[in-house]
């Protein structure tokens, strides 16, 4: 179960989709061909932007946090933040802006509560390094470490609504104990 195919399942045909941190536009290009969506991307890395444009995706070169302010309310059906929540400086601000600009927000993030992460930390006594978090502490783009429990607690506090959730480990669906067993969590959220 790939993250992108979960996202693809959730997105309705012909929807307006904004992908934050869209990289070289792979997901958007795929959604365009599969679902005929109206695609927009935001990406900071120059080379990735160029690749995305070259494959015909509408991309705006910018920092994610700055990029969202300009859009009108509910400008999109879906705003996607895939595997980037842990990298943004102000996650709550970004999520609030996603809720404002999109009818739905789709968020996927690596789960820091996974047993391998816990074990790595416990056994080595060092900042955890796993296949999901392969970086040295001084090279890591990740500046926030959150778990499934942390995330859902925040969603509840904000009074947002979880419409769907999926948990994945090694491309397999995880059915129980997600905070321990999920490597990646994917959410479909709405604001009431």
């Amino acid at each position: 179960m790939k993250i992108n195919s979960i996202i693809g399942e959730w997105i309705a045909p012909s929807a307006k989709v904004l992908d934050l941190g869209c990289g070289d536009g792979e997901l958007l290009a795929w959604l365009k061909s599969q679902k005929k969506i109206e695609a927009r991307g935001v990406e900071l890395d120059r080379e990735s932007v160029q690749k995305a444009v070259a494959r015909g995706v509408t991309v705006y070169q910018s920092d994610i946090e700055e990029s969202l302010e300009g859009y009108p309310d509910k400008a999109f059906d879906y705003v996607i933040l895939s595997q980037t929540l842990q990298e943004v400086r102000h996650p709550l601000t970004v999520l609030s802006q996603m809720m404002r600009t999109g009818r739905w927000a789709i968020v996927a993030f690596p789960n820091f509560g996974h047993w391998r992460v816990r074990l790595s930390h416990l056994v080595s006594g060092r900042a955890p390094r796993t296949t999901l978090f392969p970086y040295q502490w001084y090279e890591s783009p990740n500046i926030h470490f959150l778990t499934v429990v942390d995330f859902e607690e925040m969603i509840a506090q904000q009074k947002w609504h979880i419409e769907k959730r999926r948990f994945v480990s090694r491309d397999q669906a995880v059915g129980f104990m997600p905070n321990l067993l999920a490597e990646v969590a994917v959410y479909l959220l709405t604001a009431p």
Binding site: R46, V53, T58, V59, Y60, G70, Y71, P72
Partner: peptide
């Protein structure tokens, strides 16, 4: 220009080339 276009949700691609 880009911000103004996005405010109206136009289809706008922006690149700052090096």
């Amino acid at each position: 220009i880009v911000s103004a276009l996005r405010r109206r949700n136009h289809d706008v691609t922006y690149c700052e080339l090096s």
